[in-house]
């Protein structure tokens, strides 16, 4: 959540995000569903709840300067989405802290908070209001967003549950990039959409990069990372293994995956 702390915060002017020794742990309830019934049953048998702690991010320290485009690569379960959520202020750190300077817009892996029963337009409005925009501000943007998404004949006013996954992705991407954020977090955002939309979103991304916005991209499409980012990190089991120029990081990552720089990895964007 976005609550300023009282402790003095040192944040160099040129940084958009500063991550200091960040750790995030999930506590997972291993057995059975979390119900009152089960809790009572367990208590009556004197059993304890078995939990497992997953350390999704471990002691990560990172600075993201304003206007830079950072790519994050890593295997499934490396903690990329977790890191993005904590930068967005959704997951509280278990240890360490995150300082963010600027307005954040997110497009995270599980899809935006779209309510499937409502139309795309209604969802755009709700999302804007939840992020703190006024009714007028978001209404002024809605047209722009739906134009960018360019859904076929009037689908923008149909319930989201009738959308194809590509249509869903289009709207989600349009929302994220048209909110004029200072910091844009994209988690697997460019994967949906057909060739023409990919082209369009890629161009939009280049524009945003030129406008000196700060962007953090998580993607398994390594070509995207290579082309758009000016630096990259490689995450592995919660830790940052390497940091540097995107092509170097991608190379290292690919070597690790033991696949080599196969063309297919560069084509799937």
């Amino acid at each position: 959540m976005r609550y300023a702390s009282k402790a003095p915060v040192v944040m160099p002017e040129e940084l958009a995000v500063r991550i200091e020794d960040l750790s995030i742990k999930y506590k997972i309830n291993v057995d059975t569903k979390r119900t009152l019934k089960n809790a009572v049953m367990r208590a009556s048998k004197g059993e304890r709840v078995r939990t497992r702690v997953v350390e999704a991010v471990k002691h990560l320290t990172l600075d993201v300067p304003h206007g830079s485009v950072l790519g994050i690569v890593g295997a499934n379960g490396a903690g990329k989405s977790t890191l993005m959520r904590s930068i967005a202020g959704i997951l509280p750190p278990t240890e360490g802290r995150i300082i963010v300077n600027g307005k954040i817009s997110t497009l995270l892996a599980l899809g935006v908070g779209f309510n499937p029963a409502l139309s795309g337009r209604d969802n755009i409005i709700l999302g804007g209001l939840a992020s703190g925009m006024t009714r007028d501000e978001i209404e002024a943007k809605t047209e722009e967003i739906s134009d960018f998404a360019a859904l076929p004949d009037g689908f923008i006013d149909m319930p989201v549950r009738t959308y194809s996954s590509g249509m869903y992705g289009r709207v989600a991407f349009s929302v994220a990039v048209n909110m004029t954020p200072d910091i844009l977090l994209l988690d697997e955002a460019l994967s949906a959409g057909d060739a023409s939309f990919k082209e369009k979103s890629f161009n939009r991304m280049r524009e945003l990069c030129k406008e000196a916005r700060t962007i953090v991209i998580v993607s398994h499409a390594l070509a995207t990372i290579n082309e758009l980012c000016d630096s990259a990190i490689w995450m592995h089991k919660g830790t940052m293994l390497a940091k540097g120029k995107p092509d170097a990081i991608v190379d290292q990552y690919l070597k690790f995956l033991d696949v080599g720089a196969l063309p297919s990895n560069f084509e799937d964007m």
Partner: peptide, 14 residues
């Protein structure tokens, strides 16, 4: 471009 709807610097801590 929008009104400044989140305080500029935010700190997320445990």
């Amino acid at each position: 471009k929008n009104s400044d709807f989140v305080s500029k610097i935010q700190v997320f801590e445990p």
